[in-house]
């Protein structure tokens, strides 16, 4: 079996999701399915118009945490490629924040692994969002219990 192609990147520069997906499409003839998730910055959150977002992370731990999440996915599903790219620094509304892409022989593994990866990333990778509203106020974004619940789903015995 060919080695799994994995790529994990944390970057301050802009991200082009379509360009990032290109290499996963049509280069491996054993691949039958590619799924992807792109998280975008919204201009409205918690009752306020958001003008700008700054993403902070824990350099070193971030990469380790993302690698651990990818390793966990590889024990659960048969995958051919996994790509995770996450922005840090200053973002504007509509900017891509995160890309998760998975290639597999079949759609089932590709869909489930992609959702698992983003669910775990949202609760285990050390990133924090700070918003600047249109009024000029800055605030740290609160974590959501719905994200915890989404990640919890994968702990059950029937999670694969």
């Amino acid at each position: 079996m060919a080695a799994v192609q994995t790529e994990i990147r944390v970057q301050t520069g802009a991200m082009d999701p379509q360009a990032e997906l290109g290499p996963l499409l049509g280069t491996d003839t054993a691949t039958g399915a590619v799924t992807s998730f792109v998280g975008l910055m919204r201009d409205f959150n918690q009752d306020a118009q958001v003008a700008e977002m700054t993403l902070e992370h824990y350099p070193g731990m971030t990469e380790k945490a993302l690698q651990a999440i990818v390793d966990e996915a590889l024990t659960r599903w048969s995958l051919q490629a996994v790509k995770i790219i996450h922005r840090v620094g200053v973002l504007r509304p509509a900017d891509p924040i995160v890309l998760v892409a998975v290639a597999s022989a079949h759609r089932g593994d590709a869909f489930r692994a992609c959702e698992f990866l983003i669910d775990y990333l949202k609760t285990r990778a050390p990133f924090w969002k700070r918003e600047t509203t249109r009024d000029g106020d800055t605030r740290w974004v609160e974590s959501r219990s719905s994200d915890d619940q989404a990640a919890q789903r994968w702990l059950g015995s029937d999670s694969t």
């Binding site: 998280g39 993403l55 996450h86 990333l121 949202k122 609760t123 050390p126 740290w140 974004v141």
Partner: peptide, 10 residues
């Protein structure tokens, strides 16, 4: 040792 609030990435 790092201390931080619940994470909010993604």
């Amino acid at each position: 040792v790092g201390f931080f609030p619940p994470v909010t990435g993604g």
